[in-house]
C-alpha cells in the first residue's frame, strides 16, 4: 500500500475569509463557518495526532472530539486568529488522555507499526522507521513538542501554548528530544 495523497474538500475552505472572521461567525451560530474552520484545519490536527499516536486507530475519534470540544468553547477563544494552535492544544490534551488509556492497556506496543506497512519504497523505509522506533522510547513530554515543532512545523510559541509550558521549557525539551533521538539513531546504525 502506498502513501495516499490527501484530497481536501476545497483548496481554501472558507475562501479568503480570515480565521478570526470564521470564528466570529461560528460563535454566532453560523454552521457553514464552523465547517470551514474544520476543513481548513482538520488535516493539520489529524497529522499532529497521527504522528504523536504512531497510528491512526483512534484518529477519527480524537479529531471528532477535538472539534466538538472546540465548538463548545469557541466563544472563549481569546485570539480567534490563532485558532489552529488552539485546536492543536485541544488535540494534544485529548491525545494525551488517549495515550494514558492505551498505556494501561499495553497499546503502545504496536505503536508506529502502521507507517512501515504504508511505505512502498524500501529505500525510504529505514530512516523513518528508525526514527519512529527511536521516538517511541522518548518520554512523552519531550516527544510531543519535538513532533509539533520539527515535523508539524509549529512555531515554538504555539508549541509552548499547546503543551502548556513556557517557551524556554519547550526549547529545552525539543533539544533534549533531539539529543536522545540522535543518540538512539546513532547507536542503531
Amino acid at each position: 500500500m502506498g502513501i495516499r495523497a490527501a484530497q481536501p474538500l476545497s483548496s481554501t475552505p472558507g475562501g479568503s475569509t480570515s480565521d478570526a472572521d470564521l470564528v466570529a461567525a461560528a460563535v454566532g451560530g453560523d454552521r457553514a463557518a464552523f465547517r470551514a474552520i474544520y476543513l481548513r484545519h482538520a488535516r493539520h490536527v489529524a497529522s499532529a495526532i497521527t504522528r504523536w499516536l504512531g497510528d491512526d486507530a483512534d484518529l477519527d475519534d480524537i479529531v471528532q472530539d477535538t472539534f466538538v470540544r472546540a465548538s463548545q468553547r469557541l466563544a472563549s477563544l481569546r485570539s480567534p486568529a490563532h485558532v489552529r494552535p488552539w485546536l492543536v492544544t485541544i488535540a494534544v490534551r485529548l491525545t494525551h488522555s488517549r495515550i494514558v488509556i492505551r498505556r494501561r492497556r499495553g497499546g503502545l506496543l504496536r505503536a508506529f507499526g502502521w507507517q512501515a506497512a504504508r511505505i512502498s519504497d524500501p529505500a525510504l523505509r529505514a530512516p523513518a522507521d528508525e526514527l519512529s522506533a527511536a521516538l517511541i522510547s522518548v518520554p512523552e513530554d519531550l516527544r510531543v513538542p519535538w513532533l509539533l515543532h520539527r515535523i508539524e512545523g509549529e512555531r515554538l510559541e504555539d508549541v509552548a501554548a499547546s503543551c502548556g509550558v513556557s517557551l524556554a521549557t519547550v526549547k529545552r525539551r525539543i533539544a533534549a528530544c533531539e539529543r536522545k533521538l540522535e543518540r538512539r539513531m546513532g547507536g542503531g546504525r
Partner: peptide
C-alpha cells in the same frame, strides 16, 4: 540521518482523505 528521517516522516501524510474528512 535524523534530518532525512524527519523529512521522511513529514512526507508520510496520514491517510486523511476527502472521504475520511
Amino acid at each position: 540521518a535524523l534530518e532525512r528521517a524527519c523529512r521522511d516522516l513529514r512526507a508520510r501524510t496520514p491517510a486523511w482523505d476527502d472521504l475520511r474528512e
